[in-house]
Computed example of a mutant assay.
Amino acid sequence: MRSMNLILSKALIDFFIAFGVVVGGSLLAGIGSVLAFSPPSAMMLDTADRLKIWALVAAVGGTIDPMRVIESHMMHGQLSPVAQQLLFILCAFIGAHAGTELIRLVCRGSG
């Protein structure tokens, strides 16, 4: 049970790290574009799209280690660590995507 709680808490942390990278980076890009006298909405939308993959990388550790874990454990038939890494990557992707969609919603408004 404790192991499952640790896995779920890491997955939740990965979600919010990726979400925060996209939202924070986009908001700061919007502030920068205001200071540079350019349209902030366009800059925020573009930045959110470009940060999405980097948010995923930052959330899962920023290195190739998750891929090594997947490769080494799969070759030995141990699927549990592989499933964990895939869960972490999926949660980070969902967080980055949710951040991108939030920025789209904020920049385009409701109508």
Rank of each mutant, 00 (worst) to 15 (best):
43 M>D: 05
14 D>A: 14
54 W>L: 13
18 A>M: 05
70 I>P: 08
29 A>F: 08
55 A>R: 00
43 M>C: 07
99 G>K: 01
29 A>N: 04
29 A>R: 05
85 Q>F: 03
21 V>Q: 03
51 L>D: 01
86 L>Y: 02
98 A>D: 02
61 G>V: 08
50 R>C: 04
3 S>W: 01
72 S>H: 09
78 Q>M: 07
29 A>W: 06
54 W>M: 04
103 I>E: 07
86 L>E: 00
67 M>W: 13
29 A>Y: 04
3 S>K: 09
61 G>F: 11
79 L>M: 15
65 D>V: 13
102 L>F: 14
36 A>S: 15
46 D>R: 11
93 F>Y: 07
39 P>S: 14
45 L>K: 08
65 D>F: 11
109 G>F: 01
32 G>Q: 10
91 C>A: 13
11 A>P: 03
101 E>R: 12
54 W>T: 03
11 A>V: 05
80 S>G: 06
58 A>C: 11
47 T>V: 07
59 A>I: 02
12 L>R: 01
8 L>Y: 14
79 L>W: 14
15 F>C: 06
70 I>H: 06
17 I>P: 03
39 P>D: 15
85 Q>H: 00
72 S>I: 13
86 L>P: 02
38 S>A: 10
4 M>V: 05
90 L>I: 11
85 Q>V: 14
67 M>P: 04
85 Q>R: 01
34 V>Y: 05
72 S>D: 14
108 R>A: 05
26 S>V: 03
81 P>R: 02
10 K>F: 10
87 L>G: 02
101 E>K: 15
12 L>N: 05
5 N>S: 09
31 I>L: 15
86 L>R: 01
6 L>I: 09
5 N>F: 12
109 G>D: 06
76 H>T: 12
47 T>E: 02
106 V>L: 14
94 I>N: 00
68 R>H: 12
33 S>F: 14
110 S>Y: 09
10 K>P: 00
53 I>F: 14
31 I>N: 11
30 G>V: 06
42 A>F: 12
42 A>Q: 10
65 D>P: 00
101 E>Y: 11
78 Q>Y: 12
96 A>S: 13
4 M>R: 10
40 P>S: 13
72 S>K: 13
31 I>G: 11
19 F>H: 11
26 S>N: 09
14 D>M: 10
7 I>H: 13
9 S>K: 08
52 K>I: 03
67 M>G: 13
11 A>L: 04
98 A>R: 01
14 D>G: 10
89 I>R: 00
5 N>W: 09
70 I>W: 07
100 T>P: 00
89 I>L: 15
80 S>Y: 12
38 S>N: 08
111 G>N: 14
48 A>N: 02
15 F>T: 08
24 G>M: 09
42 A>G: 07
17 I>F: 08
11 A>Q: 06
37 F>N: 10
17 I>D: 04
68 R>S: 11
23 V>K: 02
86 L>H: 00
75 M>Y: 05
75 M>A: 15
26 S>R: 09
78 Q>V: 07
67 M>A: 15
9 S>V: 07
5 N>A: 12
45 L>I: 15
40 P>I: 04
1 M>W: 10
9 S>F: 01
48 A>K: 02
48 A>I: 03
6 L>K: 12
70 I>L: 13
39 P>H: 10
63 T>L: 13
13 I>G: 01
95 G>W: 06
